[in-house]
Amino acid sequence: MIEVEIISGRTLDQGATVEEKLTDEYFKAVNYCELSEEDFNALNLSEGDRVRVKTDFGEVVVYAVKNKDLKKGMAFIPMGPYANMVIDPNTDGTGMPQFKGIKGVVEKTEDKVLTVKELIEVI
């Protein structure tokens, strides 16, 4: 298990599939978590492995992806339903939940990644 700071955000693939949310393409565009090379190796992960991301606000299982441009301790999940399982919903009076910069932990898991439809069921 490693400690990370989670950022969610737009990606080109997420944007290109955002009007096709019930397709496999969208599922693939948003169901992963990027980790730094160091963290990725520390968790003994290889491509296609799953991780459980946990914060004070929830947890979610996503695919692990190595991103050599990320600094150690940072995790990136594309904006969307998976990221939104773990981001901080508090708006601090602004109306804006904190979608970026949430402390959490990441661990390797054998659990499966829920589909978009399953995800909405468990909420």
């Binding site: 009007e19 096709e20 019930l22 606000f57 339903p81 939104n84 978009v116 909405i120």
Partner: peptide, 27 residues
């Protein structure tokens, strides 16, 4: 919003009558 709001917000949306106007099916 079901895709783009935090989980706790979506939870209430699931409890109330919702009308959607959109070209595409989404969450």
């Amino acid at each position: 919003p079901a895709a783009h709001f935090p989980k706790v917000s979506v939870k209430h949306l699931k409890k109330i009558p919702v009308i959607q106007i959109d070209p595409f099916p989404n969450m």
